Simulated assay, not measured.
Amino acid sequence: MPPTLRQRRLGAELRKLRDQAGLSSTEAAARVGIQQARMSMIEAGRYGVSADRVRAMAHTYACDDAALIEALSNMTGRRSRGWWDEYRELLPTALVEVAEFEHEVTALRVAVLVAMPGLLQTAEHARASYNQNVPTLRPFEIEHRTAFRIRRQGVLHGEAPLPYTAIIHEAALRMGIGGANVVRAQLRHLIGMSEHEHLTIQVIPFGRADFPAAGQPITYGCGPVPQLDTVMLDTDHGCEVLYAEAQLARYRAVLDRMQRCALDPAESRDFIHQIAKSL
């Protein structure tokens, strides 16, 4: 089985610590007491590593950030099977990894221009969106993807729902996907979701031309420590995952600016309600 997103991230963070320590893979392997080939496999996420080994590697690399070391240690061990694994034979890997990503983060910030956030879509809206897919999806593929998208929304419900902020441009509210009835139900669903304490929905109206236009949907996931934050960009060729410090800083700035351009949550709720009434 190929390494999961979590396993690849752990390997990348261990490699980053090694680079910061100024050690080659060969030097680090010798100090830790493993073969260089195994070190390379660990850093590629293709070989399991224990929490004790992670702590030993952090010590070797002179890392004294206790919170980061603990967070990395918690990423080790035998991978538990998540509900999304049921879909690995049915859906592209990139789609499945989105659910894994949402399960691992501690909070989410999303910004979209023309597409409704996946975690806030109704089943009818999701199905209508997939019907417009290029290349065309077969009916059973649409149903698999729709069911998967709705099941992902479980992170927003339950005893410990995920804190979630969605910044939505007015264009996404007016796209008309599925026809007036589907759009009206989708907008009413947004209004209802916006009333949950852990959800923040803000709208950027057409009149705000000063926002930093981002062509693709942006998803910013907060990790257990800031160093483990992650950005996901939804592109035509799949999800692009970013976690370099400069990239994280850039997208935090973009999201902060977009949020400053948006109406506040109460104004956004009224705005969505007015659009729904006009349909």
Results as ranks from 00 to 15, higher is better:
R152Y: 06
V112L: 01
E159C: 07
H198Y: 00
R15F: 02
S129H: 06
Q7L: 04
G176D: 02
T26L: 13
Y220T: 00
G207N: 09
D52K: 13
E267P: 01
C261H: 00
H125R: 06
G215V: 09
L228G: 12
D210W: 06
G192F: 00
T60C: 15
L17V: 03
P212W: 09
I218Y: 05
P205N: 06
A249M: 05
Q247C: 00
R53L: 15
A58G: 05
R188F: 01
T219E: 08
S24R: 08
H169T: 05
E97S: 11
H59Q: 15
M39T: 01
H169W: 03
N181R: 15
I150A: 04
A21S: 12
L10H: 02
G11F: 02
A67L: 13
V231N: 02
G176V: 03
F140C: 10
E89I: 05
V183I: 10
V105E: 01
A171F: 04
P3I: 05
P226Y: 09
E141R: 12
G22K: 09
Y87F: 15
N131W: 01
P163G: 07
A115V: 08
S24Y: 07
V203N: 08
R208E: 15
D236E: 12
M193L: 09
E104A: 12
D210E: 12
I218H: 01
A12E: 12
A160P: 04
P92H: 10
E240G: 08
